[in-house]
Design a protein around this nucleic acid. Structure first.
Lengths: 206, 206, 206, 206
DNA sequence: GATGAATGAGTATTCATTCAT
DNA sequence: AATGAATGAATACTCATTCAT
């Protein structure tokens, strides 16, 4: 008696449910943070009953962690791809920034999750920003050792600062990309990085 | 011999209880965020029973707001005092940074509360950082209008970036001030600000 | 061997839980009033855990309202059925009274809830008695206009009085139906209504 | 240095505090019922601190009981004074009703407290209405024994009904005395009592 | 796999009552 | 007598998590 009933519900297939829960999680966590969302919300938003959530994730925290890790990986690949042959050099600044902004543009929700300093979230994820900062600091240290960078500047401060700067600007921009043009955004970020954190930084970039 | 009353109460005096609750709030909010703390925790930490909390604050949110506002005010006074005669100029950078670091040094808990981007907290306070950014952006716009600053840089991006940078560095340093010396911290922050966000920034600061 | 689950659950069926909570609510509200009962009490009495209550009702007030409305509807149908063709006439008095007493007999708990003048309850329900009084007053007014009823009597006073009379008697009787026989109850109520509130009331009813 | 400070606060003298608390209690209980009022409210309304309440009354319930008992006594005296020489006779109906309405007129708050069927209140006070009903029922029984009243009518039903009628009408009228004139109110009540609950009741009252 | 009713520990909040001052 | 800060038991309501179907 029942006919194929093409419900609004997305397709069910292997991995589909998990994917839909992940999708709902990304959206809701970005909007309301780890706490502002219940597992019921997520399941319902994904089109499933409450219990289904637990068939795919141990708990809410695990979902968050998975999303965070996926995102970190995604970002890392993107950045590595953009700067593979010039890591840490001045020439890498623009491609790096470009990749970062591109990522933010395409993954607005993820940016908000990743760059939040939600106290809960922080406890859950081994913060991306810390990793990024560590890698930047390492580069600086190498440059200082090689005499390419003023030794009196603290590489960790520089790295934390840079990371804080990028995170806040991207989170701010992701909230409303109308706030400034992509080009102006990138130019400004590149300028700051070059002049502020690269040796003998001047405004003439290339 | 049996004591019905809980404990020898902490010292009484006018406003003591409120002050103790505020103190406990600052500490616990800094450690665990708005949600990570219960009103019971706060009251107990202050040495009082649960109900006492509500004699002094309408609810948890109000306590948070009061702490945030107090802190903002404290910081504002400090920064204003340090830069009264040179706001927005290059000469103001070092005193401004010095005051900021001094504040962070003396109020480690407050810095963590203030500079958190806790999604809950954000809903409560009109984030300090936004205010700071707005004031910085305004300065930049004035400089651009006066031809003292490259027009192709976006003042909002610059301001958001600066604020993100300072907040993250201070929060990072407040977690463990052993991470770098006060002097190196200030020098590095001054360098970045001067070269990155002031006209014709070079490394020769003074 | 140890049972984590609380108890063998009561019989399941569609709507069973809700029905059991309603049942418990009727009983407990009748006994102790809206405030004298906690949601825990109700859930426990129905054989469920505290949280289950909230799966079926928004809050205690909603349960009360639902019970009150159900009851009003039940009573209204009963009274309408009994007097359909003779509303407001003298001939309607006995069937009306009979239906009312029958209702009270079969729904002792509901009667106590409905006819309570609990200050809280009053805030919740648009009191049945007020409705009943309004409808009675309207009938009187029509009779007065038609010259069938002494104009010097106030229809609202009459209506409020009648309603107060019936409510109190039924509540009193419902507490313990042994207090008087059904027949004596009805005869007495009919007598009062006929003689007191109908034109040229005498003791010879039929 | 301090001068006589004629505060809005009422006079303090022996018995004054207690009297003021009683006064506040009458007003607030009438407005919001036993539960709707806190001891803080009452004390504050009377112009005292919270603790003072307990210097004069054991607890909230006792205050309520005292008010209820005072009121019952007041009413009893009034009714007795009005009908001293004609209790239970037809001639007593008008003076009785007149006294009752007079009491309601002068003590609107008390009427609302007394005639409420608040489930809490009922538990506290030995309801006045029950006493009144008992005394009325007794009269009826005497009349029946003397052959002055139709034996087939149940005296308790009559008494409960009468009491319910009077209570509801008075509570209704006390809420807003503009609803009907004093004269119409009394005439209507007298009519109902005479015709409905007195032997051979007709409309010719005197 | 999916369901969704049920669980029950957790938390904010209220308020009658006490007692040191 | 009066004060009013403090108490802490009581209670409504939420939500992560489980499990029989």
């Amino acid at each position: 008696m029942s006919v194929t009933r093409p419900l609004a519900r997305p397709p069910r297939g292997p991995g589909q449910t998990r994917a839909q829960i992940l999708e709902a999680g990304r959206k809701l966590f970005a909007e309301r943070g780890l706490h502002g969302v219940t597992t019921h919300d997520i399941a319902a938003h994904a089109g499933f009953a409450a219990g289904t959530f637990y068939l795919h994730f141990r708990d809410k925290t695990e979902l968050f962690r998975v999303i965070a890790e996926e995102t970190i990986e995604l970002l890392r690949e993107r950045l590595d791809g953009a700067t593979h042959d010039s890591r840490g050099t001045r020439a890498a600044v623009r491609p790096f920034t470009d990749a970062l902004v591109g990522f933010a543009e395409e993954n607005r929700d993820l940016v908000r999750i990743l760059f939040s300093r939600d106290s809960e979230a922080a406890a859950v994820e081994a913060n991306v920003l810390n990793e990024l900062a560590a890698s930047i600091a390492e580069n600086r240290r190498a440059q200082i050792a090689a005499g390419e960078f003023p030794a009196q500047l603290d590489p960790d401060v520089l790295a934390q600062g840079l990371v804080g700067l990028l995170a806040r600007v991207l989170a701010w921009w992701s909230e409303d990309p109308e706030r400034t043009s992509r080009a102006a955004l990138i130019d400004t970020l590149v300028h700051i990085q070059i002049s502020g954190t690269h040796p003998s930084g001047t405004h003439t970039e290339e």
